[in-house]
Design a protein around this nucleic acid. Structure first.
Length: 216
DNA sequence: AACCGTCGCAACCGCCGAATT
DNA sequence: CAATTCGGCGGTTGCGACGGT
């Protein structure tokens, strides 16, 4: 156990940045907790990691978000909720922190979304954990087969492009039917996705995000 | 010019799962 | 196999910058 008091807090100085970058240049990323020991930097491992990822990493894009980026984030957020790391992973050069901040400060306002306690990602995890012992409590057989049942990714794409009505269709286990048959397939409005009944996201976890990407 | 409220962003915190010991 | 450490995530906070009065 390390003493918490040893670790400096607050904004990073140029000198600290230099030390961290030098260390990573030589040793590479990882082993964050050992950086303090080997460099004398009075920062905890977490702080070093965050500083690198959010600021020092050469891949990080600075400056304003473009309209394309904003559009992408909005659509990804509709699908994924507050899973910032997943969203950021699909927005080149942007970190989860940047995406999260931009969402909370700009896009929420832009879209007229009130900030609420919609802790989608983590609540999903904790809820599914709680439900884990009782799988029957979850409609576990939601059949999420977008490429065929979504009437192709392009349909989802078209739907998602309509900002006011963006929807994503999930098909039930029974079979994929036409969208007119609301009993075996259903649509989620953007608002529904924002409220995010957690089990609806469950199937997403088992699919490659590439599919989600294809739907955009 | 001074004060005050708001905004935006960097950084911290707490929690969790995975990896290691 | 249990305990500990590490890395990662999302939510939250603190503070400087900025604009309005």
């Amino acid at each position: 156990m390390e003493s918490k008091n040893e670790h400096k807090k607050g904004p990073w100085t140029v000198e600290e940045d230099r030390i961290l970058m030098d260390h990573i240049r030589v040793h590479g990323k990882g082993k964050w907790n050992r950086i303090a020991k080997t460099t004398g930097l009075k920062r905890c491992g977490k702080s070093c990691r965050l500083r690198w990822i959010n600021y020092l990493s050469p891949g990080v894009k600075r400056g304003d978000f473009s309209e394309e980026e904003e559009d992408l984030i909005i659509r990804l957020h509709n699908l994924l909720g507050n899973r910032w790391s997943l969203i950021a992973g699909r927005v080149p050069g942007r970190t989860d922190n940047q995406v999260k901040n931009h969402w909370n400060t700009h896009l929420c306002k832009k879209l007229g979304i009130k900030k609420g306690k919609t802790k989608v990602g983590s609540s999903l995890q904790s809820l599914s954990k709680k439900m884990g012992n009782n799988p029957t409590s979850v409609p576990s057989k939601l059949n999420f087969e977008p490429p065929s049942n979504c009437n192709s990714a392009t349909e989802a794409k078209t739907a998602a492009k309509d900002d006011s009505q963006s929807m994503c269709r999930f098909a039930s286990t029974q079979e994929a039917t036409t969208e007119d048959n609301n009993e075996s397939s259903f649509w989620l409005s953007k608002d529904d996705l924002n409220l995010l009944t957690p089990f609806l996201l469950e199937p997403l976890n088992s699919y490659s995000l590439d599919f989600v990407w294809d739907c955009l």
